[in-house]
Each structure stands twice: as structure tokens, then as C-alpha cells.
Design a binder for these strands. Structure first.
Length: 184
DNA sequence: GATAAGATGTTA
DNA sequence: AACATCTTATCA
């Protein structure tokens, strides 16, 4: 039950995205703690056209520029929330999108970015939240480090820019990884 | 103030 | 493959 600290997140976003795999996503709701293994992530950096921080700081993306450990939650397509953890350093807009987790002590649909936020009641109320604070209701604990051979690296899902960047990481043969999208 | 596009999920 | 559905960004 050791929580990750700022030094884990204050590194290159690609490294953080890869190393978050296998760690435990924790969410406390009404004194119950829900835990799940992070099985799929994507990296987003400021100089990447697909990143919300690409065109500078805006009202929506402001949290991406805060210190490592800040939560960035936004609404997509008017109906689904997506959750990110901010990385690197304050003032630089970057983060890791959590796309899927494997539930450990609860049941729920968590094999997609919109589904896992719905299952764990993650909404814009948590945007700008600090997961490193002592009384956090959302945080990450160290889990089992996956064998490097079990990690797959591919292009990201659901974007129209920066498609050539292989910045998506997931655990091979894990049934909780999100399904590929139909052609747009 | 209007408009277009979007880091998705469900259904058929 | 189509659609549900609405915030945000980007103009004017």
C-alpha cells in the first residue's frame, strides 16, 4: 500500500505512461476503496498536435499545466469523461490518459476511458485535484511491475492528429484493454 | 453569438 | 457503420 509520489510523475511523459502499467488505480467513494490494475495508457505532450495543451493554456486544459500529480478530467463528445494524470513539470502541459483498468475488488465496466470514469464516479469535479495530498479520494499505489515483454506499444486511439506517434501502452493479452474503434 | 469538431460507447 | 449529444475552442 505504498502510494506513488511526485518524483514518479515528474519524468518524461512516455516513461510515466509505460511505467504506470501494472500499478494500482485507487478511488475512495463513501469510505469504500475501489482498486484496479492500470492496463492501458496513452501519453500526451505539449508539442503533440493531439494534446489539449498543444495550443497553449485554455480554460479546459489549464490543469494539464499544473504540477505532477494533478488530475485532468474533461468531457468528450458531450457524454463521457476522461481522466489523466499530469506529468513532468509545472508550466509544461503534459499528462497520461488512463484508458483501461482491471478491477481487483469490485465489478464494473472499466475497459475504456469513458467507461472507467463512469464506473468510479470520476467527473469534472475532480479536475485540478491533487492525488498526492494526504486526504485524497483518488491516488495510485505501486503494484507488480509487468515484464517488459508483456507491454505493447502502438498508435493512440480516437485521434485525428499525431496518429503516427506510438504513444499508447497496454498489457498484452489482458482482457480489460479497450476494444479498437470502428473506422471513422 | 454562431459554428465545427472532438483522447467515446452503444447499437445494429 | 451510424448515432447519441454537448462542451470547448475558434472565429466574428
Amino acid at each position: 500500500m505504498v502510494r506513488i509520489k511526485e518524483d514518479f510523475l515528474a519524468r518524461d511523459t512516455l516513461v510515466v505512461a509505460k511505467e504506470l502499467l501494472g500499478n494500482i488505480f485507487c478511488r475512495k467513494i463513501d469510505d469504500k476503496i475501489y482498486r484496479g490494475i492500470i492496463v492501458e495508457t496513452e501519453a500526451y505532450k505539449q508539442e503533440d498536435p493531439a494534446c489539449h495543451a498543444y495550443r497553449g493554456i485554455t480554460k479546459r486544459s489549464a490543469s494539464l499545466f499544473k504540477k505532477p500529480g494533478t488530475v485532468y478530467v474533461y468531457l468528450i463528445y458531450g457524454m463521457y469523461h476522461c481522466v489523466n494524470f499530469v506529468t513532468q513539470k509545472e508550466g509544461y502541459g503534459s499528462g497520461v490518459l488512463i484508458r483501461a483498468i482491471e478491477p481487483l475488488n469490485f465489478t464494473g465496466q472499466t475497459n475504456g476511458p469513458g467507461k472507467l470514469t463512469k464506473a468510479l464516479d470520476i467527473t469534472k469535479k475532480l479536475d485540478g485535484y491533487d492525488i498526492l495530498s494526504a486526504d485524497a479520494s483518488l491516488w495510485i499505489e505501486y503494484g507488480n511491475s509487468p515484464n517488459s515483454k508483456s507491454i505493447a506499444q502502438t498508435a493512440r486511439v480516437g485521434i485525428t492528429q499525431g496518429v503516427d506517434l506510438p504513444w499508447r501502452f497496454y498489457l498484452k493479452e489482458n482482457k480489460w484493454v479497450s476494444k479498437s474503434r470502428p473506422t471513422l
